[in-house]
Design a protein around this nucleic acid. Sequence first.
RNA 1: GGGCGCGUAGCUCAGCGGUAGAGCUCUCGCCUUACAAGCGAGCGGUCGCAGGUUCGAACCCUGCCGCGCCCA
Length: 869
Amino acid sequence: MDPRIATPDNAAPGVLSGVPDKPSVDGLEEKWVARWASEDTYGFDRDAALQAPREQIYSIDTPPPTASGSLHVGHVFSYTHTDIVARYQRMRGKHVYYPMGWDDNGLPTERRVQNYYGVRCDPALPYDASFEPPGDAAAAKSDRAQLPLSRRNFVELCMQLTEEDEAEFEKLWRRVGLSVDWSNVYRTISESSRATAQRMFLQNLARGEAYAQEAPTLWDVTFRTAVAQAELEDRERPGAYHRIAFHSADGPVFIETTRPELLPACVALVAHPGDERYQPLFGKTVRTPLFDVEVPVVAHRLAEPDKGSGIAMICTFGDLNDVTWWRELQLPTRAIVGWDGRILADPPPGVPAHPYDELAGKTMFSAQARIVELLRESGDLEGEPKQITHPVKFFEKGERPLEIVTTRQWYIRNGGRDADLRDALIARGREIQWVPEHMRHRYDNWVEGLNGDWLISRQRFFGVPFPVWYRLDESGEPVHDEPILAPDEALPVDPSSDVPEGFTEDQRGKPGGFMADPDVMDTWATSSLSPQVASGWDTDPELFAKVFPMDQRPQAHDIIRTWLFSTVVRAHFEHGTVPWSHATISGFVVDPDRKKMSKSKGNATTPIDVLERYGTDAVRWRAAGARPGADSPFDEAQMKVGRRLAMKILNIGKFVLGLGAGSVDLSSAATQITEPIDRGMLTALAAVVDEATAAMEAYNYTRALEVAETFFWSFCDDYVELVKSRAYRSDDAAASAQAALALALSVQLRLFAPVLPFVTEEVWSWWQTGSVHRAAWPSAGELPAEGDPAVVTVAAAALSAVRKAKSDAKQSMRADVETATVTATADQVPLVEAVRSDLVDAGRIQLLTIVPGEGDLRVDVVLAETPEA
RNA sequence: GGGCGCGUAGCUCAGCGGUAGAGCUCUCGCCUUACAAGCGAGCGGUCGCAGGUUCGAACCCUGCCGCGCCCA
């Protein structure tokens, strides 16, 4: 038995057995986490839910945390927000479908495995069944020292490490008190998730919503993978404008460029159609310096007259504008940038071998240096390069500027190239209830700014492969136009080890044989299916029909453009609906400098430490103080306040139950409550219940907590102080107080239960059966409606005035008052009279006089003589 | 450059047309039989600035200034 729990022998007289002598918040997590698990308090009753009407179900599309990462206080806050809502909905009697997922898919896991084991994936290597990871991982930090191993071995390590990580995460989440149904956990890399992702992809493909295309693509040269628009970020980088002369019959035409090394890739010059300076040149041609290639001068609205000389070279491809110009003006392609970010060995057609050979194989940096030398020698560089800083596109996880490389990639349509689809997706956004409301602008903003379809293929290893092979023709070239798709019953497949029907493994990579599609899906392409994966689209259609579209998608605001949007796209195509009715957007926890807390910045606070020092309830209390969508600073002083509230709930519970409230029959309590102040207090509580309920319905858990808490402190400090001596007695007036205390405790424990699950459960367990978390959310109907709350406020004001007199006289609150004269308005006089006896007891007043008067309530106090110290 | 949000007490934030609020901090008290990891009392603000609407503006409107985030 827990030593903190008092046995009947040492329990205080009149206190229920099981109530500890000295309640403590410490140790409650261990006790209740174990009990909730063994009693399956948060289990989802599938059979009952299937019988229930849809509105009796509440389903949550929990964000699967990145298993390879580590959790910080920010995660604890946002997951707590969701849990508060889940607990509330459960208490409202709903079947709460609240699974947990792990995102163990993608680049972060790859990197973690590389660093943890000191290995790297080399897809060319064969599988080694006896492979054991090196024990001494720390020694192998540098890229060169990493041990190469096959893709299958690498993926096995990914699976292994993420499983360990996930076990740790689960332990932490349980300690945080998440009321997740832990029998329902999914992994984004699991067989069923892979099957879902592949099946959904094939559906998209069959309906024409997915397609492959050879096209210029933003390319990270470090990771050697394509990246999507959503993964871009602009960074300010130094650069220089080079003023370069193109040659025409009428003399030189000067352009200014930050990328002179792309000169051999130039296919045209472009100026704005309204730019009078260049009107005469439109439709004519000029010749490039050094290479002497003839290129047209064209007009396009995207050219910026006030940038540089107002005329620019179009290269294939220097930036996204080049891609637009190339596409819209139907220009030729002269690609010179390779997958490794170096200049290709051979010049594009029409470009002379010399001086191209001076650049071939060079990095962009050295190529630029060399071409500047050449231009200077030929006299085509005018003046010195002008240093500037300008925004350059980067992969958000990358360290080198992106290049644009023409590759074959898979895309899903997202409205970036289709106005009708874009409008339909914006309309979907309007069907979603956003919390807070203004977050929908982020969505609209993003969808309206899309400039291409969603690129979903990545040239990586640990992810869901495309379930596709290609036949190889007689010369060994893949026939991309006729992809071989995996049959539905075979999913999930790994085309790099599975063989398509009609072929044998020894035909892999041979002319006349086949090859696998080498790519894996982008992490968002798989996580965009979290509602389908979590709800059993692929595994439990009956359940899926019941819980989808889901009720809530909780997430942070930084991934509205990625996770949220892509989820909407997939549901729109597959189901013709939104994926959920509500999107609840939590803010960040920021450090004292208002910087987002993140592990990479080194300013993250480890949650376990905070949870241990202040207790889970204290941390959850602080989390609940951060309103939906609002960033909130991490401040340890606030945790202490939460801890104090948790302690207070334990203490008031113990006290109230000890006063006799523990033996009150709650079902008939209302009939025993006769004293005006008791009825007034409960009627005030009824209003609090209504307000808290309305706030919770609007997902405003902060407001719900605030009203409950304000009431609670005044309940403890004023009401309980006023009635406690009466409650000690054994007459009808005592019974009234005891019944009121019991009702108030029951209601308040339930109001606090979603935010403070541990202490409320502890106190509940002292006198009730079952879990408070399965009890009904309180309703105003449980409480007397006709009491006058003003009785409590007037009595509290009078008591406060008496306290002030004692405090001013530097006396103990126990000091006797000889006379107290309350001056109150005519309306208030009967109210004060109604609490006369309680007031006299609480204030230790020998003679209380109540007189009518004007203005605010006033109490004139004469303290009794103090005995000489 | 566009969008969104935010500027209220030293700090964190409520309030969003009717006499400026809470918690923390700070100060001064109090062994008070639920709680000293507690309790009581107090100090503290021209509500970013400037106009406007109104009998009345922290709140509504306009324009600035500052901060943050998202997108170009």
